[in-house]
Simulated assay, not measured.
Amino acid sequence: MRTPRLDALPPSEGAWLEVDIGRQCLVHWQGEQRQGEWSVSTGLAGTGQREGSGRTPLGWHYVRAAIGDGLPPGSVFRGRRHTGETFSQSLAEAHPERDWILTRILWLCGLERGFNRGGAVDSQRRYIYLHGTPPDQPMGVPRSHGCIRMRDADLLEVFALAPPGTPVWLHE
């Protein structure tokens, strides 16, 4: 297991996020003080760095972009763009093939060259996000295609706490 060193964090006024894949939770930290915790769902295929693996990457990342500010909860995204749709059961039934990305996107970029940055292991090029998911999707169990899924209300809280530049540590 990779152990975080607070002195190795990029500058972000001491605020950072931890995604504990083993516990399926996200923790918000201010320095060494735990501020909040939320349930998540990570990759069904487990952890891994490779593009096309469907696995959740490990290591240090940062929030590269925060997308969707001001849009209503349930807003639907495709290709990081708002489609103009709001998630509903009838929309889900009309598009059963979609991997729903809802409400907000926190797009992650790896910080460790050759591990989660660059080449076939680049988290940003893999489009690894923290994003909302439909209410019928379970939390606390791995079910995603590699991203970190959250309940919309929880994601809205985290979105407000994690502007671009916020460090994020993903570990098992």
Rank of each mutant, 00 (worst) to 15 (best):
P73T: 09
A8C: 05
G79Y: 05
F77G: 05
S53R: 04
M150E: 08
P57L: 05
L106G: 15
R81I: 03
P11H: 04
G118N: 07
P142T: 02
G165M: 12
E51R: 09
I148R: 02
R98Y: 11
R55H: 01
R2M: 02
R64A: 14
I101L: 14
Y129P: 01
R23S: 13
G140S: 11
A15H: 15
G140D: 15
R117L: 15
L26H: 03
T47W: 04
L71K: 11
G79F: 00
W16S: 08
S144V: 07
D7L: 08
W16Q: 05
G70M: 03
G43P: 01
V158F: 12
L26Q: 05
G84N: 09
C147G: 04
A65W: 07
L155W: 08
P57R: 06
D122H: 00
W107R: 10
R143S: 13
P164L: 10
A94Q: 07
R113T: 11
E85F: 11
Q89A: 12
L71D: 09
I105T: 01
I21L: 14
G48W: 00
F159Y: 15
I148S: 01
V121R: 06
E93H: 10
G79L: 00
F77P: 01
A162H: 14
Q24I: 04
H145G: 13
Q35Y: 04
P138H: 10
Y129C: 06
R78C: 01
S75C: 09
P142F: 06
Q137L: 08
P167H: 09
L156P: 00
A66Q: 14
W169V: 11
L111E: 13
V63Q: 13
E85W: 14
H171I: 01
R2C: 00
A94R: 09
A92N: 14
L155G: 12
G52Q: 04
L58S: 05
L26G: 06
G54D: 06
V27I: 15
V76T: 07
R125M: 10
V141Y: 11
L44A: 15
A15D: 04
L108W: 13
R117Q: 14
E13H: 14
I128A: 05
G140W: 07
F115V: 09
E112T: 12
F77K: 03
S75Q: 13
G52K: 03
R34P: 01
L6W: 13
R78Q: 14
G46R: 12
D152T: 11
G110E: 06
R98F: 03
G48A: 06
D20W: 08
Y62P: 00
R149C: 11
Q49P: 00
G132I: 03
P4V: 11
Q49T: 06
S123T: 15
L106C: 14
Q24M: 01
G59C: 07
H95Y: 12
T86S: 08
H145I: 07
A120L: 02
R143C: 12
S75A: 15
E97M: 08
G118A: 12
